[in-house]
């Protein structure tokens, strides 16, 4: 049961679904449009089903399956790690929400301020000066100098 719900199994399942969708979508395309998505979709579906199966039946050998890539830390106790992961992921999604609601120029210093104060529990001097730095970079460099088109936050749309 545990293995069925393991992340590895679910991820392989998700990738298999992507492969299946690619094949399905290619059904209504002209041949040349569809050829490559099919050439990719078929092995993708097959290999991810294999990966799914493998994560079901066999426990991994000790030395197998190490990717040439970094691995998440294992120094932190799992419950604490889970709590912290959840916290940081909500902060990241929260940043996006800030950007949507307030627009970039306000969201950035606001986020920096809140994160430093709530998570870092930093002192006022450090918090405020770093918030100012982030505001200056945002406003001076990206807004004034580069004139990036930042969409207005939703609350300003409510205003008018």
């Amino acid at each position: 049961m545990n293995r069925v719900l393991s992340l590895r199994f679910l991820f392989a399942l998700a990738v298999a679904l992507v492969g299946a969708y690619a094949l399905y979508a290619s059904l209504e395309w002209p041949f040349r449009t569809a050829l490559f998505p099919r050439l990719i979709g078929i092995p993708l579906l097959a290999l991810s089903l294999l990966e799914m199966l493998l994560s079901l039946v066999s426990a991994e050998k000790e030395r197998e399956g190490h990717a040439v890539d970094f691995e998440m830390t294992t120094d932190v106790a799992p419950p604490l790690a889970r709590r912290r992961t959840l916290a940081i992921l909500s902060w990241i999604v929260g940043f996006l929400a800030f950007i949507l609601v307030f627009g970039f120029p306000i969201a950035v210093p606001l986020f920096v301020f809140l994160y430093l104060k709530l998570v870092g529990k930093e002192g006022w001097v450090l918090t405020l000066s770093l918030t100012l730095v982030s505001w200056l970079t945002m406003e001076g460099l990206f807004n004034r100098l580069l004139h990036l088109p930042f969409p207005e936050g939703w609350i300003f749309a409510l205003w008018s």
Binding site: I88, W91, I92, F95, F111, V112, Y115, L116, V119, G120, K121, E122, L126, L130, S134
Partner: peptide
């Protein structure tokens, strides 16, 4: 905790 908001 100080770096994370800037990296983000």
């Amino acid at each position: 905790a100080v770096l994370i908001p800037f990296i983000l």
